[in-house]
Write a protein that binds this DNA or RNA. Structure first.
Lengths: 124, 124
DNA sequence: ACAAGAAGGCACAATTTTGTTACTAGCCAT
DNA sequence: ATGGCTAGTAACAAAATTGTGCCTTCTTGT
């Protein structure tokens, strides 16, 4: 259900231009793997199996699903190379690139959160 | 499952300080309602039922669950007032506040995404 | 001829998240 | 004393997300 229909998302008091953009973004970028995939691709384009190796714990099926989703949402591009054996290269689109700075702040925030949690643990 | 255990999250090639902070953040902030709730509270503290009215489509149960989760993760604080009838005020903690700028960029990005989608629709 | 790497597909299953409907308990005003 | 407001609970159900295990097709190296 990642299709975007402009009247599918409930109104949001913050900005009611079309739908709630925050919820939309969370829906597109949230989830367990999208962030990691995006951050890998932000460093360089990558072949399918290379990504698989770089993301421990992900299965082929899930990786494929995520990549498809991200392509459908215009975040990445898929390109079959013509060399043998045929390989598939994935890389960020401009839209995908435009999310990278946000990704970095999410990462920062996460790290801050972690250290805060650790401080709490010390005290208890 | 929102508890944080430092070795529960798979390694992330980006930053392997403790776990993948991106995934962690997505896990804490993702989902359908957290963003909206946070953005409401970023404007002012709010009572339970006021929030309920401001977020069309949310049910009591879900709102309660979300608020509890956010409190558990240290994003918001819950305070029972002593007036009659007793009411419950929710407000952001510093940690919660610290996410607001990110929320705004998520919102911006969402809006950009929406306009891009619309342009595509025009062309087809 | 045969294994092995590339990029998946398929059937099914478990988990997590979100939703529905109804109910409670304290208090207050009419 | 009845209804309505406060902030929830409880039992149950549906939907979405993520995962498992095994199969496939093409190709290249030995």
């Amino acid at each position: 259900m990642s299709d975007f229909k402009s009247d599918q998302y409930g109104p949001c008091t913050l900005t009611v231009k079309h739908a709630c953009p925050i919820e939309l973004t969370m829906h597109i970028m949230g989830g367990k793997w999208k962030g990691i995939i995006l951050s890998l691709l932000s460093k360089s384009p990558m072949y399918y199996n290379a990504m698989r190796r770089e993301i421990p714990g992900i299965t082929q099926r899930i990786l494929t699903l995520q990549l498809r989703d991200m392509k459908k949402n215009g975040l990445i591009e898929r390109e079959e190379t013509s060399d043998n054996p045929k390989r598939v290269l994935y890389y960020l689109t401009d839209l995908g690139e435009s999310f990278v700075p946000i990704l970095k702040s999410l990462e920062k925030w996460g790290n801050a959160y972690i250290s805060q949690q650790e401080e709490k643990l010390k005290k208890s």
